[in-house]
Each structure stands twice: as C-alpha cells, then as structure tokens.
Design a protein around this nucleic acid. Structure first.
Lengths: 213, 213
DNA sequence: CATTGTGAACTCATTCACAGCG
DNA sequence: CGCTGTGAATGAGTTCACAATG
C-alpha cells in the first residue's frame, strides 16, 4: 500500500470524486463496477482510474472489476475520511453562518464544533444553527478542549492572514480558506483554498475564448 | 495578442491571482512591479509569471518591469472581467442566501439580478437581500429580460442536473456549480465546479501523508 | 544593466497498449 | 475471456538559462 512514489495532486481530487460516485452506485444497488464504467461516470479515462488506484494498492479483481463497497472503504482510508473530523469556523458573516448550517459537511463526517469571531458585537451571540459565537482569543483553549483538527476561514480578505496566524498558534495544521487572499502558513500546516471569484474569472475567460461570446 | 497556442488552464487561474495582487499593489501605491516580486507575492516562479503573460502579449518593459495599473487592465481584458456580468442564482437554501449577500461578487463586477427556486414554499418570498424568489419556470423569460449571462447552482446534488438542463434551455452558457454533483452540460456551455467536500478530502489526505498525522 | 521574453530542457501527468491473472 | 495493473509512450506544464532590449 502507498508505495513511495510521487502521487499527482489531481489523483487525490479524483479519488474523492470516485468515492462520491461509488456511494451513488451502492445506493443504486450495484455490487461491482469496472474501471471503464466508473471512469465514464466521473468523466475521466479508464486507465486514469486504474493508475490512480494503482498508486495505493491492488483493489480490483481481473476480469471482474472492483467491489463497489470495498473500494469505497479503501478510498476513504486513503483520504483519511474513514473517521470524523472536528472543525472550527472563524468569521461569522453571511458565508460563515451558511457554512455552519451546510448539511454536506456533517453528512461526510466533517462537523463544526465551534464558531469564532473577533467582533465584540458578535461574540456571545446565539446563532440559529445552535452555536454560540466565541471570542477568537479562546481559539487555542477551545481547540484543545474540543479537539479541533481543521480550521475554516470565512472572514473577509483583510482579516485572513491574522486568523491564519491564530490558527497556527492554536496548533491547527489544516486550514480551509474561503477568503480571497493567498494566505501563507508554515510547512507543517496544509491549506486548501476555495476562491469563488477566481472560478468566475475562469468562467468568463472560457466564455470569451471557448464559446466565443 | 492571444497567439494561437494551447494555454494551460492553470495559467488562467494564475492570471486571476495576479490581477488580485496587482490591485493590492496599486492600493499600496506601487506604480511598477517586477515579475520576481509579483511571483513572490503569488507564491509562484518568476518565469511562470512571464510565461503566463507571454501567451497574451508583451506587457512589460525590459530592465524595468510591469506597470501595475496597465497590467491589471490588460489581465482584466483577457479574463473578460473589464465589464459587468449579470448572474442568476438557483437554489435558495442556506448557501444560496449567503451568496446573494456575498460582497465579493458585486465588488468584482458580478451582480446577482435574480433568484430562483422550485419549492412553492419559497417562491414569492422576499429575501433580506432584497430579492424576490422567482419560480424556476420563469428562468428562460427572466434570463432574456435581465440579460443573465451566468447561472449559479446552489441546490443539493439531487436537483443539480435538472437545474443545469433548465439553465441550458434558457440559453445560459456559463454555469458556476456549488453542488457536489458532476453535472454534464453540452459543449457550448462552460462549467466551473466548486466542491467544498472534495477540498476537505484533499486536506485530510495531506494531513495524513504530508504532515504525518 | 536590470529585467523581460522565450526556446530548450526538464519535470510532472495522462493515455496507450498489452502482459498478467482470476 | 475480460478486466486489472503497469511499463512505455506521449503530452502538458513548469523551470532554466540566456539572448534581446529599453
């Protein structure tokens, strides 16, 4: 398992997509699936599916395919989502409030367990999602108490770097950043960035050059 | 300008990031910037910056660098964001409601002009963002009336493909998809996908294999 | 003479093609 | 026999290194 070999970043993204499709296949009653079929569902090449899986082991049966349920479990192990994760949200604006209520997170094992802000107006407030807004100063303490593994930044760009520093200081080493700022974090901290307007820029570029509008 | 040559998708994403940094530089009073400095700010290689720009023209002055303001304008032209865009939102849940209020969109020229849902409970409702929820059946008519260029999907996975079909039927050929489903659209329609839980899966994978937790 | 613009070298990622195997 | 697993071939994207130049 997990031979020491460089694994493309895109492979990880695809594993997540395969996993989602396998759940749907299982729900639809399928027991086995071929790389060809899974590839088609995920809009990729069949060899790609096999190669992606090949980085981590041999999960298929030649002449037959992959067991829908088993493969799902294996991928979840690889992605480290065969367990729950506690998350802390920083930034209780429109987006933050919506994320706290977002059902996809708990459905996939990612639970918010605390919400933070630095605005005195907001601290102490009871949110309709059931959370009480905590002072960002309590981040370190709360992180330990509630075993927070992932920090989610939903502040405006202006506050994002300071929040990052706070998260790092609280020993959180995984950050999901919704702010439109390229935050910088030390090497022992991993960051993923979700930037809505970059995607919109890409979309309008494509409109212009691919569609010709 | 725009020599016929294959342009990496990642180049477009980076152009958007450069543009954002150039705005910050301008705000801080800078007139010129070198590829080296811009690269450092965007956490990429300096040759990368020059090559990315090189696909579209010669925007710099040798020995000096790039004019912060002019380069910004050129990139905005390339990305087709030197104009405003009207967007229609479909799916008035927690996320949709937050997107309508999200300040980053209008700040960058992307304006929501209508909000749709198929739930009779929601249709007709006045949202605090000032929008009235329209029936999804009015999508085509409203798209023409309000000149909607971009459709944003904020429904659960279950409704996403049908909404996509509706958008395509309404002649919208750019879709930003927030649902966790791989939607399929015809070739004359461009799609960008923002999937929160894929990013979380990547994050936990990295935690496990890069940080060793 | 500092910095751009760019062919060439290199690295990374995908796809092909078929041997290996249940 | 059919489908996986994988080395080899191809293709894409990044970085190097330096000639071109304001």
């Amino acid at each position: 398992m997990h031979k020491k070999q460089k694994i493309p970043k895109a492979t990880i993204t695809r594993l997540s997509i395969y996993c989602r499709q396998l759940e749907l296949l299982e729900f639809d009653g399928y027991r086995m699936v071929s790389s060809e079929k899974l590839a088609w569902l995920c809009q990729v090449n069949a060899a790609q599916v096999r190669k992606d899986l090949g980085y981590f082991g041999e999960f298929g049966v030649r002449g037959v395919g992959y067991d829908v349920r088993d493969l799902q479990i294996e991928i979840k192990k690889i992605l480290a989502v065969n367990r729950g994760w506690n998350m802390g949200l920083v930034g209780i604006g429109n987006l933050g409030t919506a994320l706290l209520k977002h059902q996809n997170f708990p459905d996939r094992g990612f639970r918010f367990v605390a919400a933070f802000d630095s605005d005195p107006e907001k601290i102490g407030k009871n949110l309709s999602s059931g959370f009480i807004v905590r002072d960002i100063k309590e981040l370190k303490k709360t992180t330990q108490e509630l075993n927070i593994g992932i920090g989610v930044i939903a502040t405006p760009a202006s506050g994002a770097q300071e929040v990052t520093n706070n998260l790092v200081d609280a020993n959180i080493c995984a950050i999901l950043n919704f702010s439109p700022l390229q935050i910088s974090a030390p090497d022992n901290c991993v960051v993923e960035h979700i930037d809505f307007t970059i995607k919109l820029d890409v979309l309008t570029y494509k409109l212009k050059y691919e569609i010709g509008l």
